[in-house]
């Protein structure tokens, strides 16, 4: 094979209709989707020779740790930097994520995910950043579990793949996993109820439908369903049954 055929779902601006454009670039070994896009933007001409505008997309680290270059590739959501052409069926079909506002071409606006983090109080409430010595001692096993949750890069794969997430009416696995992350921390646990409140609203944790696509789609292999079920337990114990202690 000496060329790579790439179909890109284009949109000029928010509200404009989407349409497909077909591009073709010379094959080289070790190409990833980003390299293809970089090649296309140098000289944006469609396969049929039509001059067009270069596609826009988001990219940054290219090592699958920043999460920005997420898009739907051949029907599945993933990072485009780690999508190697040699492992993909051709033609390669690139679409923007469908669960977020589409800004242009492959660019989406995921700021709602960061808003979710605000709502779930995703931080340890420090007394201050001045020197107070070391933090609490912790078991390495707990640390490793927290580390797994802490690797979430807010890429949105879990939300894109979730059949329950649409129009932002579900807070989603990523925010719930962050609740777990901080509720597991000895100092973080002191604000447990604030976080539970954040995931018990009308768009809260009960909107999970247990399709478990999130955990399959997560590029960081975060045990998202475990986090959700841990928080199910906490919401039952402290939320639903909390009044029994009063």
């Amino acid at each position: 094979m000496n060329t790579v055929e790439i179909h890109i779902k284009r949109r000029e601006k928010p509200g404009a209709p989407q349409h497909w454009e077909i591009f073709e670039i010379p094959y080289r070994p070790n190409l990833n989707v980003i390299s293809c896009l970089l090649e296309i933007r140098k000289n944006p001409v469609t396969k049929s020779g039509q001059k067009t505008t270069p596609p826009s997309w988001d990219m940054n680290c290219l090592e699958q740790v920043c999460g920005i270059c997420t898009m739907v590739i051949n029907g599945r959501v993933r990072q485009s930097c780690s999508a190697l052409v040699d492992n993909l069926d051709q033609p390669i079909k690139l679409e923007p994520m469908t669960k977020f506002p589409n800004i242009r071409d492959l660019v989406v606006d995921r700021s709602q995910m960061f808003d979710h983090l605000k709502r779930v109080h995703a931080w340890v409430e420090l007394d201050g950043t001045y020197d107070l010595g070391p933090g609490p001692r912790m078991d390495q096993e707990d640390v490793m579990e927290r580390y797994a949750y802490s690797r979430c890069m807010t890429c949105g794969c879990c939300l894109e793949a979730c059949p329950q997430y649409d129009e932002d009416h579900y807070i989603g696995p990523q925010a719930i996993a962050q609740v777990r992350l901080f509720n597991m921390h000895p100092s973080g646990a002191m604000d447990r109820d604030e976080r539970l409140q954040g995931i018990m609203g009308d768009d809260g944790i009960t909107n999970c439908g247990n399709a478990q696509n999130c955990v399959k789609a997560c590029p960081m292999n975060i045990p998202l369903t475990k986090a959700i079920y841990e928080e199910n337990r906490e919401t039952v114990l402290y939320g639903l049954l909390g009044w029994l202690k009063k």
Binding site: P163, Y165, G209, Q212, N213, K216
Partner: peptide, 22 residues
């Protein structure tokens, strides 16, 4: 009501639990 909210996507994510969901 819950069912109306569903956006099944089994063809692109053909996992057992996702089928169970649908």
């Amino acid at each position: 009501v819950i069912t109306v909210e569903a956006r099944p996507n089994n063809l692109h994510y053909p996992y057992a639990r996702n089928w169970f969901y649908t």
